[in-house]
């Protein structure tokens, strides 16, 4: 089962994932038409500002198991898709009670009018892991547009393995055995990040 893995240290806050997500969940699936659609297509991933300038975090549904939102939904509108392991909301069953948002520890559920729901009201909307795209063998839209690998699609075990590899390299550096291929962030990029933190701390004085 594949999932979207987030590398927050790589997020540059460009919000392209948000745009791609909204377009993917539009009726036309075309940026230039989507901006004119009613209801307005909405993203299901949110690039949140970090603690300081020049940091950001792409926040989306983790498709938890067990999923708190699913457990508290009083109409059974939230279910888990068995084959792809995706927590999905059937907006047509939503009564907008907001219980799901209240228990989601990641704050990824919003209330919008949705083109796929023929009700004249807002309903709970969240990431569906681009289930339609996955069925076509594509990666989720947010991952496709992320050019900095802040969002990666893959098997969690594989990703964890490569993350463990990265960690091992870091440890080897810490113990003095410097690995030549350590994927360090470029120094100027780190300087850019650092400015955000420094200026923030100066302002808080």
């Amino acid at each position: 089962m594949k999932t979207v893995f987030v590398n927050p240290e790589r997020c540059v806050g460009c919000m392209q994932c948000q745009v791609a997500c909204a377009v993917e969940h539009s009726q036309s699936k075309n940026l230039y038409q989507a901006v004119f659609e009613v209801p307005k297509p909405r993203p299901r991933i949110y690039v949140a500002p970090g603690l300081y300038l020049n940091t950001s975090f792409p926040n989306k549904c983790r498709h938890c198991d067990p999923a708190p939102c699913m457990e508290v939904c009083p109409t059974g509108a939230i279910t888990r898709n068995a084959d792809l392991d995706i927590v999905v909301i059937d907006g047509n069953k939503c009564i907008t009670c907001a219980m799901c948002a209240m228990v989601c520890p990641f704050d990824v559920i919003r209330y919008y009018e949705s083109a796929t729901v023929k009700l004249d009201k807002t309903v709970a909307v969240k990431c569906d892991h681009c289930i339609d795209r996955q069925r076509q063998g594509k990666v989720p839209a947010c991952v496709e547009v992320c050019k900095v690998n802040a969002l990666v699609f893959g098997d969690p075990n594989e990703i964890a393995k490569s993350a463990a590899g990265r960690l091992a390299k870091l440890v080897s550096v810490a113990t003095g055995a410097i690995h030549p291929e350590l994927p360090r962030l470029p120094a100027t990029f780190e300087a850019w990040r650092k400015w955000g933190e420094e200026s923030g701390k100066v302002n808080e004085r």
């Binding site: 540059v12 806050g13 460009c14 919000m15 949140a48 300038l53 020049n54 950001s56 470029p186």
Partner: peptide
């Protein structure tokens, strides 16, 4: 906030209609 990192880093280009383009500051992407 957050403001676009490509733009803040100077790595986005809108100068022509083959674009817009941006360069991955980490070296993996374009």
């Amino acid at each position: 906030e957050p403001q676009c990192g490509y733009c803040a880093l100077g790595l986005s280009c809108r100068n022509c209609a083959m674009g817009p383009c941006r360069v991955d500051p980490f070296g993996d992407g374009p």
